[in-house]
């Protein structure tokens, strides 16, 4: 593995609302190496977007990082001032948002918005930056970039806007790119274009990518490692193969079983996860998934499980993995070597 880019250690983030403290993230640790793509999956409210906003230090009031460390290239960025962060953001860490319609500035040309970061961080002159902007647009696959560079965002289609966003994010060759649901607002054929582009960039430019999504198909396609979040905690973490073929947490298994497969022919009955996610204003004391878990035991409601290592890099927080717990065998229907069958 390459150089360690990001190491998040025991991160806690809360929102201090008038109703009380919403504990959006309750002790999250993960890391990312150069040129690697990490997927963070989870449902709405699982804390996946708050994790990325914490890493960017873009939390809006009343959100605050309570404790923990975010080591970016060996340096903790949690104590950094907003001015110091401004020199990192856009230069070394960049982000792509879900909605390309609202995250571009409508009154500046696309070219101007790509040039902005390069002029600020790399001290390029306007004409140099413009030349680079055309190159960036070409890199992300915008046709006739020389003309398109002077267009305003409303003259771009949804897919092209997302490409422009990626061009902005990559303009300063960041070490880390955070993509928060980058394809959720796009159609499938456009999604395929964008995912192909992200994979290409990872291999060509060697950027480390965090891909946040609720779509298991997207992470299976792009990411080599996956973090599964639920109720502000990491439920399971491991390589893509570990998560899909050897899931150890009942939540991961539940997610895999609840989605229909396009490539399977028998009409399967979907297996839904009953109930709804927990309220993080009063998070459960034990495992957050206990109330929806088909294998829940007495201890699950009372005590939060620790992480059990299954193999190096693959661990899950579930009491079922304790040597004293009953053995549970679950067939999720997804098997290694399924491609040949």
């Amino acid at each position: 593995m390459g150089e360690r880019i990001l190491d998040v250690q025991n991160l806690y983030t809360s929102f201090y609302t008038h109703l009380g403290e919403v504990q959006a993230i309750r002790g999250v640790s993960f890391h990312l190496d150069k040129g690697e793509a990490l997927g963070i999956v989870g449902e709405s409210g699982s804390g996946k977007s708050v994790t990325s906003m914490s890493v960017m230090k873009l939390l809006q009031h009343p959100g605050k990082i309570k404790s923990g460390k975010i080591m970016f290239k060996g340096e903790d960025i949690v104590p950094k001032s907003s001015k110091e962060m401004m020199s990192i953001r856009g230069d070394q860490i960049a982000m792509i948002f879900q909605d390309p319609m609202t995250s571009l500035n409508p009154v500046y040309t696309v070219g101007n918005q790509i040039m902005e970061a390069m002029i600020k961080h790399q001290g390029l002159s306007k004409s140099e930056a413009r030349k680079k902007a055309v190159e960036m647009l070409k890199l992300v696959g915008i046709p006739s970039p020389e003309d398109r560079v002077d267009n305003y965002p409303h003259e771009f289609s949804g897919g092209m806007r997302q490409r422009a966003m990626i061009a902005i994010a990559l303009s300063c060759q960041p070490d880390l790119l955070i993509a928060d649901e980058p394809t959720t607002a796009l159609d499938v054929t456009i999604q395929a274009q964008i995912l192909e582009l992200l994979k290409e960039l990872k291999d060509k430019v060697n950027t480390a990518i965090i891909l946040i999504t609720h779509d298991l198909g997207v992470v299976a396609d792009v990411c080599s490692r996956i973090v599964v979040m639920y109720g502000g905690l990491i439920m399971e973490q491991g390589s893509a193969e570990d998560i899909f073929y050897e899931p150890k947490h009942p939540y991961t298994m539940g997610l895999i079983k609840s989605i229909p497969r396009l490539d399977l022919n028998e009409r399967q009955r979907l297996v839904p996860i009953p109930g709804t996610p927990p309220d993080l204003l009063n998070p459960p004391v034990g495992c957050p998934f206990a109330s929806r878990c088909p294998y829940a035991m007495q201890i699950c409601a009372n005590e939060a499980p620790k992480y059990y290592d299954i193999n190096p890099g693959h661990h899950a927080a579930c009491w079922l993995l304790d040597p004293e717990a009953p053995k549970v065998e679950v067939d999720t229907g997804v098997k290694r070597g399924g491609a040949d069958a």
Partner: peptide, 19 residues
């Protein structure tokens, strides 16, 4: 062909027609 399949081996081997 554009739809990613939630199975790493299958989806990475899939032939894509990118429009």
């Amino acid at each position: 062909s554009a739809i990613p399949i939630p199975d790493p081996e299958v989806t990475r081997q899939k032939q894509r027609i990118i429009l």
